[in-house]
Lab assay of single mutants.
Amino acid sequence: DYEVGESVTVMDGPFATLPATISEVNAEQQKLKVLVSIFGRETPVELTFGQVSKI
């Protein structure tokens, strides 16, 4: 299970290999909103559970 505030690594898509912090969890739809730090700015990205891995 994923929790808000948890650190994960993006495994898929254009942000693969980047660390991210979970900002929202939708367990019903198996989706997460995460904040990816790009060029010093936090960018919100919506991903599925399968696109991230716990650190």
Score class of each variant (00 low, 15 high):
D1E: 13
D1Y: 15
D1K: 13
D1C: 13
D1S: 14
D1N: 13
D1P: 14
Y2C: 04
Y2N: 02
Y2F: 14
Y2G: 01
Y2R: 02
Y2A: 02
Y2P: 03
E3Q: 14
E3K: 14
E3T: 12
E3A: 13
E3H: 14
E3W: 13
V4T: 05
V4F: 04
V4Q: 05
V4P: 08
V4D: 03
V4K: 06
V4S: 04
V4I: 11
V4L: 07
G5S: 03
G5N: 05
G5W: 04
G5P: 01
G5M: 03
E6L: 06
E6W: 07
E6H: 07
E6Q: 12
E6T: 07
E6S: 07
E6C: 07
E6V: 05
E6Y: 05
E6A: 08
S7A: 12
S7G: 08
S7K: 15
S7C: 13
S7P: 08
S7V: 15
S7E: 13
V8N: 01
V8L: 04
V8Y: 02
V8G: 01
V8E: 00
T9G: 03
T9V: 15
T9Y: 15
T9F: 14
V10G: 00
V10A: 02
V10I: 15
V10D: 00
M11P: 02
M11R: 09
M11I: 15
M11Y: 05
M11D: 05
M11S: 08
M11T: 12
M11V: 12
D12E: 13
D12S: 14
D12P: 02
G13Q: 02
G13N: 02
G13R: 02
G13P: 03
G13M: 02
G13W: 03
G13S: 03
G13E: 02
P14E: 09
P14S: 05
P14T: 07
P14N: 05
P14A: 07
P14D: 07
P14V: 08
P14C: 09
F15L: 05
F15E: 01
F15I: 02
F15H: 06
F15A: 03
F15N: 03
A16Q: 08
A16K: 12
A16P: 02
A16H: 05
A16I: 09
T17C: 14
T17I: 04
T17E: 08
T17N: 14
T17Y: 13
T17W: 12
T17K: 10
T17S: 13
T17P: 07
L18F: 14
L18T: 04
L18G: 03
L18H: 10
L18V: 05
P19D: 08
P19V: 15
P19N: 13
P19K: 15
P19R: 15
P19T: 15
A20L: 03
A20S: 04
A20V: 05
A20N: 01
A20R: 01
A20P: 00
A20I: 02
T21I: 15
T21P: 02
T21K: 12
T21C: 09
T21N: 05
T21V: 14
I22Q: 01
I22E: 00
I22M: 01
S23F: 15
S23W: 14
S23I: 15
S23V: 15
S23C: 14
S23Y: 15
S23T: 15
S23N: 08
S23L: 15
S23R: 10
S23D: 06
E24K: 06
E24M: 09
E24R: 06
E24I: 07
E24L: 07
E24V: 08
E24C: 09
E24W: 13
V25I: 12
V25K: 03
V25N: 02
V25A: 03
V25G: 00
V25T: 04
N26G: 04
N26P: 01
N26T: 05
N26H: 11
N26D: 12
N26L: 11
N26C: 11
N26A: 06
A27I: 13
A27L: 13
A27F: 15
A27D: 08
A27T: 12
A27C: 11
A27R: 14
E28L: 11
E28D: 11
E28G: 10
E28N: 09
E28A: 13
E28Y: 10
E28H: 10
Q29Y: 10
Q29D: 09
Q29R: 10
Q29P: 03
Q29G: 09
Q29F: 11
Q30G: 13
Q30K: 13
Q30C: 10
Q30W: 08
Q30M: 11
Q30H: 09
K31D: 02
K31P: 01
K31W: 11
K31V: 11
K31N: 06
K31H: 06
L32T: 00
K33P: 00
K33G: 05
K33I: 15
K33C: 10
K33H: 08
K33S: 07
K33L: 14
K33M: 12
V34S: 01
V34N: 00
V34I: 06
L35D: 03
L35V: 12
L35W: 09
L35K: 07
L35Y: 09
L35G: 02
L35E: 04
V36R: 00
V36Q: 01
V36H: 01
V36A: 03
V36Y: 02
V36C: 05
V36M: 05
V36E: 00
V36L: 10
V36F: 04
S37D: 08
S37V: 15
S37W: 14
S37M: 14
S37T: 14
S37G: 07
S37Y: 13
S37F: 13
S37I: 15
I38H: 09
I38W: 13
I38M: 09
I38K: 06
F39E: 11
F39D: 12
F39H: 11
F39V: 06
F39G: 12
G40F: 04
G40W: 04
G40M: 04
G40L: 04
R41I: 14
R41Y: 10
R41L: 13
R41E: 09
R41S: 10
E42K: 08
E42M: 11
E42D: 11
E42F: 10
E42V: 12
E42P: 11
E42W: 13
E42I: 13
T43V: 15
T43C: 12
T43Y: 15
T43L: 13
T43F: 15
P44V: 15
P44W: 15
P44L: 15
P44Q: 15
P44Y: 15
P44G: 09
P44A: 15
P44K: 13
V45D: 02
V45F: 07
V45S: 04
V45W: 07
V45G: 03
E46I: 10
E46Y: 11
E46V: 09
L47N: 00
L47T: 03
L47I: 06
L47E: 00
L47F: 07
L47V: 10
L47S: 01
L47K: 02
L47A: 03
L47H: 01
T48H: 11
T48A: 11
T48W: 11
T48S: 13
T48D: 12
T48L: 11
F49M: 06
F49C: 03
F49I: 04
F49Y: 11
F49D: 01
F49V: 04
F49K: 02
F49R: 03
G50T: 12
G50E: 12
G50I: 09
G50R: 10
G50A: 14
G50S: 14
Q51H: 04
Q51D: 05
Q51E: 06
Q51S: 07
Q51T: 04
Q51G: 05
V52D: 01
V52G: 01
V52Y: 01
V52T: 03
V52E: 00
V52M: 02
V52C: 04
V52R: 00
V52A: 04
V52I: 07
S53A: 13
S53W: 07
K54L: 06
K54E: 03
K54G: 04
K54C: 04
I55W: 10
I55F: 10
I55C: 10
I55N: 11
I55A: 10
I55S: 10
I55G: 10
I55E: 08
